[in-house]
Amino acid sequence: TRRLSELRVIDLRAELKKRNLDTGGNKSVLMERLKKAVKEEGQD
C-alpha cells in the first residue's frame, strides 16, 4: 500500500468515498480523515 502522503487528492477522495466518508476539504483534511478511518478499521 502506498503511503497516504503519496496519494493525490483525487485518490484520497476515492478512498473516502469507498468508505462512505465525507470527501470535502483540502488535502490535509482528507488525509487526516482517511488516516483516522484506516486506524479504526485496523482495530476491528
Rank of each mutant, 00 (worst) to 15 (best):
T23K: 01
V29K: 08
L7M: 15
T23G: 04
K27Y: 13
L16K: 03
T23M: 02
L16V: 03
S28M: 11
R19Q: 07
K17P: 04
K39Y: 07
T1C: 12
R3F: 09
L12F: 04
R3Q: 11
G24V: 14
K17D: 11
K18M: 06
D11H: 00
V29A: 13
Q43L: 12
K36H: 13
L21F: 03
E41Q: 09
R3C: 04
M31T: 06
T1H: 13
N26K: 12
D11P: 04
G42V: 11
K18L: 09
L21C: 07
G24C: 13
R19G: 04
A37M: 02
K36T: 12
L21A: 06
L7S: 12
L12N: 04
K27D: 01
E40M: 07
Q43P: 09
V9I: 05
V38T: 12
S28R: 15
L30V: 06
A14V: 09
G42P: 10
E41H: 10
S28K: 15
K27C: 06
L30M: 11
Q43H: 11
A37E: 07
E32W: 03
V29F: 01
N26R: 09
N26I: 09
G24N: 13
Q43R: 12
G24T: 13
S28W: 09
L30F: 00
I10F: 04
T1W: 03
L30N: 00
N20C: 02
A37R: 05
S28N: 09
D11T: 02
M31Y: 07
R3V: 09
N20S: 12
I10P: 15
T1L: 13
L34E: 14
N20R: 06
E41R: 05
I10C: 15
D22W: 01
G24Y: 09
A37C: 09
Q43N: 01
L12K: 01
V9G: 07
T1E: 15
A14Y: 06
S5M: 07
G24A: 12
N26A: 12
E41C: 05
V38Q: 11
M31W: 01
D44C: 14
L16E: 06
D44I: 09
I10K: 15
R33V: 04
K27M: 07
R33W: 00
K35I: 15
E32H: 07
V29H: 02
K39M: 11
R2K: 14
L4V: 09
D22P: 14
M31G: 02
V9T: 13
E32L: 05
G42D: 09
E40C: 11
G25S: 02
R3E: 15
R2W: 11
L30K: 03
N26F: 01
V29R: 07
E40T: 08
S5C: 05
A37W: 02
L21M: 09
E6L: 03
D11N: 00
R33H: 04
K18C: 04
E40A: 13
G42H: 15
M31L: 13
A37P: 02
A14M: 15
K36W: 06
R3H: 12
I10N: 13
G24W: 09
E6F: 00
L34V: 06
L7T: 08
D22E: 06
D44H: 10
D44L: 06
N26H: 01
M31E: 08
L7H: 04
I10V: 14
D22C: 10
L4Y: 13
L21V: 02
L30E: 11
T1R: 08
K18Y: 04
R3N: 14
L34C: 01
N26C: 08
R2A: 11
K35S: 06
K35C: 08
R19C: 01
R33N: 02
L16N: 02
N26W: 00
E32Y: 08
N26D: 15
K27G: 04
N26Q: 02
T1A: 11
K39R: 12
L12R: 01
R3L: 08
L7D: 08
V9D: 13
S28V: 11
L4G: 08
L16I: 00
D11G: 02
R8K: 10
K35E: 15
V29G: 05
V29M: 14
S5E: 14
K17N: 06
R19F: 01
T23H: 02
G24H: 12
N20F: 06
L12Q: 05
V38Y: 08
E32A: 12
G24L: 10
R13G: 02
G42R: 12
M31V: 10
R8Y: 02
N20W: 00
R19E: 05
S5K: 10
S28D: 12
M31N: 04
E15W: 00
G42S: 11
G24P: 00
G24Q: 07
K36V: 11
L30C: 05
D22G: 08
E15L: 00
K35D: 13
V38F: 07
T23S: 11
N20Q: 14
K36D: 12
R3I: 10
R8P: 14
L16A: 07
G24R: 15
I10G: 15
R33A: 04
V9K: 03
R8A: 15
N20D: 12
R8G: 14
G42T: 14
D22H: 06
L21N: 00
L30A: 06
E6D: 14
A14Q: 07
N26G: 14
M31C: 04
D44S: 13
L30R: 06
K39W: 08
L30G: 08
R33D: 03
K27N: 04
S5F: 04
G25T: 02
K36L: 10
L21G: 02
K17A: 14
E6A: 05
S28A: 13
L12T: 03
G25D: 01
K35Y: 01
V9Y: 00
N26L: 04
L30P: 07
R3S: 13
V9M: 09
K17Y: 00
L4I: 15
T23W: 06
L4Q: 08
E40W: 06
E32F: 01
V29C: 08
L4R: 08
E41L: 04
V29D: 14
K27W: 06
G24D: 11
Q43C: 08
L21P: 10
E32S: 11
V38H: 11
A37N: 10
V29E: 15
A37F: 02
R2P: 05
K17M: 15
R8W: 01
G42K: 15
S5Q: 07
R19Y: 02
E15R: 00
L12G: 01
E6W: 02
G42L: 06
G25N: 00
R2V: 11
I10T: 15
K35A: 14
L34T: 09
E32P: 02
K27E: 12
D22A: 11
L21S: 02
E32M: 11
V29T: 08
A37Q: 08
K27L: 07
R19H: 01
E41Y: 00
G25C: 03
E6Q: 12
L4S: 09
R2N: 14
L16Q: 00
Q43E: 10
G24E: 12
S28T: 15
K27F: 05
L34D: 14
D44P: 14
D11Q: 03
L4T: 07
E41M: 03
L4W: 01
R19D: 03
N20Y: 04
K17W: 06
A37S: 06
R33S: 07
D11C: 03
V38G: 08
K39I: 09
K17I: 02
V9R: 05
D44A: 15
G42Q: 13
K35M: 10
R2S: 14
L30S: 05
I10M: 15
G25L: 00
T23N: 00
K36R: 13
R2D: 15
L34M: 07
V9C: 03
E41G: 11
R3M: 08
L7P: 07
E40F: 05
G42Y: 00
R2I: 07
D22S: 10
K18T: 07
R3A: 11
T23E: 09
S5N: 14
T23I: 05
M31P: 01
L16F: 00
E32K: 05
Q43T: 09
R33K: 05
E6T: 13
L7W: 12
D11E: 14
S28Y: 06
D11F: 01
L4C: 01
G24F: 04
E6R: 05
V38R: 11
G42W: 06
K35F: 07
G42C: 03
R33T: 09
K39A: 11
V9W: 01
E6N: 15
K39Q: 08
L12W: 01
Q43K: 11
R19N: 00
T1N: 15
E32G: 09
R2T: 13
S5R: 08
G25K: 01
A14T: 03
K39V: 12
A14D: 05
T1I: 12
K18G: 09
L7Q: 09
